[in-house]
Design a protein around this nucleic acid. Structure first.
Lengths: 229, 229
DNA sequence: CCCCGGTGGTGACTGCGGTCACCTGCATCG
DNA sequence: CGATGCAGGTGACCGCAGTCACCACCGGGG
């Protein structure tokens, strides 16, 4: 598989967050329960568990990855990035992986993608050299990968359609509803600036648009945050 | 593999273009030379060769595909489509496949994707029921699929970045250069309307922008078409 | 205490690009 | 021949949203 030929390194700005001791096998078994049994074993034996605090930048453009990250806890955000602007492409949640980040790395073109930790994350790193072999030995791993690819692809596509075919009020509302679904809270504590960054817009514009949505009755702006219906 | 669980049908607006007779094995062997030998055989035995004239719409949103199309000749265009607008996402060239179109189909969300034949195409249809099995028997098929996924993904991403971070003049120029690369001709015979559709813009705007590019010296507008440097 | 930094809020301006209306030129066809 | 249709071309208009300048507010730290 082409994706595994690249040599790579996960960006690690702060070594404090390495996991020193081998975590309990029970923990891993619990977290990997969603996998077929043989894969559980292989992953536990060969994977490297790491913890990244919120705010960490995991993957920067131009960097290479020596492992496929499988998220067990927390949440990552994946952005497309230009000089000044950024745009949220999709999230990576527990039990998901970012197989896709390969592509950005494989090709020579600078399709600047950034993965950032949004909620403190625990990640199982699977060394890419071995993945080759696993793919042959465990056909179900192919299933998994394909599913991941498809999921990423659809999320990406949906997002594009949002950006291309809908104006800011719609996009903003969709974004907020998505956050509600993600976090499980109807009251979102997000700064306007954060929202602007995710949507590739500007702070003032978000403020304005939020007011507009409030006037329409789609959201309510409270001291504590944004309530979304 | 999830993608193959869906039952599907290739949209076939005009039966004139079916290939009546079994094409020569030589033809297929030549066209499939880029594949590993065992796959060549399997594909030749089980694939169904079809010919689609330019302009055919191959895949519409909401439709299901019973086969994975492998393009042998010609060129397909893949669009994202909203009510009125359209936007070119990427091309499918010979030796490429559109594994990706699955995703749009698998998920319930209407991420309206359309594939259209731009240059008369010859396509080998691989029945999806069998692909499951092939994936197990022929590990190299996995390679192939992953490569396809990655290619699609990067192209998609590059396009998004164009749309998000660049204004029309830049996008237009990039589009034209891409066409030059694709067709091999420096003189492009495209109507402004076609360009507008591909870029999700309007005819008048393209006219204006082309004039601007000509003034800058990036292109020359001739009777016969657009010359691009 | 005041000074900052960050937050939300607001009005004025601007530019890109989409829309409308209308024009010309050219080819095809009844 | 005139009618029709499609190509490109152009000016006027306008709305969305990004930018700028400046506001008030609040919290923490010196």
């Amino acid at each position: 598989m082409a994706g595994c030929q690249a040599s790579l390194v996960i960006w690690e700005p702060d070594n404090r967050f390495f996991m020193k001791e081998q975590p309990s096998k029970d923990y891993l078994l619990r977290k990997l329960r969603f996998l077929p049994l043989p894969l559980q074993e292989v992953f536990i034996l060969n994977g490297q568990l790491k913890r990244f605090p919120a705010g960490t930048t995991l993957l920067r453009e131009g960097q290479y990855v020596s492992a496929i990250p499988l998220v067990l806890e927390g949440r990552l955000k994946v952005y497309a990035e230009a000089e000044t602007k950024r745009l949220l492409l999709y999230y990576i949640r527990p039990e998901e992986s970012c197989v896709m980040s390969f592509s950005a790395v494989l090709e020579d073109r600078p399709s600047s993608i950034v993965a950032e930790v949004e909620e403190d994350a625990v990640v199982l790193l699977l060394p890419s050299e071995q993945i080759h072999e696993w793919l042959r030995h465990y056909p179900m791993l192919n299933h998994l990968f394909f599913r991941q690819y498809q999921r990423r692809y659809t999320e990406l596509l949906q997002n594009i359609e949002q950006v291309l075919f809908h104006r800011l009020p719609d996009r903003l509302l969709a974004y907020l509803k998505d956050r509600k679904r993600l976090t499980g809270h109807a009251k979102l504590t997000l700064t306007h600036r954060q929202i602007a960054e995710d949507l590739g817009s500007a702070r003032e514009v978000i403020t304005r648009t939020l007011k507009k949505l409030e006037a329409e009755g789609s959201v309510r702006l409270l001291e504590e945050g944004i309530e979304i219906f």
